[in-house]
Amino acid sequence: MLEGNIAGPLALIGYGLAAIGPGVGIGILAGNAVQAMARQPEAAGMVRTTMFLGIAFTEALALIGFVLFFIAGG
């Protein structure tokens, strides 16, 4: 069987899990934003701003995970 042990803070795994959701979310968001820009290039500026805003909200979860990693992992 596999010998050895896994070391390191559990918080790392927590952060990894926290990053999954936002990762998927940002992917979907950016993909749809690209589609929207391709369909209506004249609205690209508005779409881009809204995209960044959406990314900012989506990213919040990952960022909270990041902070918790520092607090719990220290």
Partner: peptide
Amino acid sequence: EASGTDLI
């Protein structure tokens, strides 16, 4: 020796 909270 230094906790991660110090960083943040």
